[in-house]
């Protein structure tokens, strides 16, 4: 029952994020949703994932969002399409209907999926699965982090070059 309440809270915060006019409030609502999602992960024994969710999603990503909002604060943030916010409750009813139908339709497939995977595979602790069974994932993560760093470096390096070229023209 506690999980359902926490899930409802996460969903309400996501809705508040969608309806918020101010981008800063929206980013904070998303961070709070991440905190409650981390609590759900923790309650179900996924401690490492909960720590990652709490530190990365509600910490790092929120800082990135807040920095971006403050760097672009003079733009037309409040002139966002109001119709989208007003129509969200109406679409929500439609989404709930589609969700119920999808889960009812997918129910038999869930039972089949449970029978397909043998119970003794991919267990034995987080570190064994992470470093032993999913080594390719670790390599992929390292490659992704490196590519992300190079992407950011190249983005802001180009900007610096652009500015230096413009300065030369003015001189």
């Amino acid at each position: 029952m506690g999980t359902i309440l926490l899930l409802l809270l996460v969903f309400l915060l996501v809705l508040a994020m969608g309806l918020a006019r101010d981008l800063l409030k929206a980013a904070i609502a998303l961070a709070l949703a991440s905190v409650f999602l981390a609590t759900i992960l923790f309650l179900h024994g996924a401690w490492v994932a909960a720590v990652f969710e709490l530190s990365v999603c509600s910490g790092l990503i929120t800082v990135l969002f807040v920095s971006t909002i403050s760097l672009t604060k003079d733009s037309d943030q409040k002139e966002e399409a109001k119709l989208t916010g007003y129509l969200l409750p109406a679409f929500l009813l439609f989404f709930i209907g589609v969700d119920c139908l999808a889960l009812r339709w997918l129910g038999p497939f869930f039972l089949d999926a449970k029978a397909m995977v043998p119970a003794d595979t991919l267990t034995g602790g987080f570190s064994k699965v992470f470093w032993g069974d999913r080594t390719t994932d670790v390599l992929g993560q390292a490659a992704l982090i490196l590519s992300g760093v190079f992407a950011i470096l190249s983005l802001f390096k180009r900007k610096a070059q652009h500015h230096s070229l413009e300065g030369g023209k003015h001189e």
Binding site: L41, A46, A49, F52, L122, T123, F126, K128, V129, F130
Partner: peptide, 9 residues
């Protein structure tokens, strides 16, 4: 454990 690894990734 397995799903925790996927969530971290």
């Amino acid at each position: 454990d397995f799903i925790q690894v996927l969530i971290v990734t």
